[in-house]
Amino acid sequence: MKRRDFIKATGTITLAAGAYLTVLKPSANAKEEKDWLNGYDWSKHYWGFGIDCTKCIGCGSCVRACKEENDVPKDPYHFRCWVERYVYLKGEEKPKVDSPNGGYDGFPEKYKKEEVLKAFFVPKLCNQCAVPACVQVCPVGATYQTKDGVVLVDEDYCIGCRYCIEACPFGARYMNDETGCADKCTWCYHRITKGLKPVCVEACPVEARIFGDLKDKDSDISKFVEKHRVSKLKPDMGCEARVEYNGIDSEVR
């Protein structure tokens, strides 16, 4: 008898709960998929980014423009886009690396010309990895990968645990203190989806930044990849970074 009672009670509750959930379940697909995209068709594009370090002059225009366009805090701790300087001094094996204020104020003359063996600038930004570590570790799904290959952060959903910031091998993420959310470069998703170029690409005076649609064989980025022997950062991390660099060496991390 006791067991039967138990089974009865359990069964009733389960059925009631089941019915309750079926009725109240929010209709997730009330809005059509494409309605969420404001008319933009993301299956037609796959964005790509290239950086030609043989051209970069380290002026910092990209950093300044980026901070304006994307409301990045103007302190030396928050960057969507920054520039590093790699300098090999004569007689030294390892390069000296610096990035004063991320290159926002340009680069001070720090090394004597005669002492320098070779040197170059490396602009950095989010690599929009094909296998993004940050998306994998987000506990609530506040960061995600779009179909056109960009990783975005949902400012209204991020809980601020900063696991993604720790998980990014490139240091591309930061904590935006105004929103209390993780933030990062989106390749100016609000611009590229309107047919414009990311602001850093526009601001670059020497065309060291190349942007375009990899699905379009005549785009700047497709031609850039075709023409140069490009490499990507930290292939050992298995994130499959997608920014194509020309003119860097293996010391660049």
């Binding site: 998929e33 969420w36 799904g141 995600y144 975005l152 998703y189 609000h190 602001v199």
Partner: peptide, 20 residues
């Protein structure tokens, strides 16, 4: 709708103002 994230955020991202 698309994956484990809010599709509403894409709309928000797309409608951000361009400043340049």
């Amino acid at each position: 709708v698309f994956g484990h994230y809010r599709a509403a955020n894409i709309s928000k991202q797309l409608s951000k103002e361009t400043k340049f």
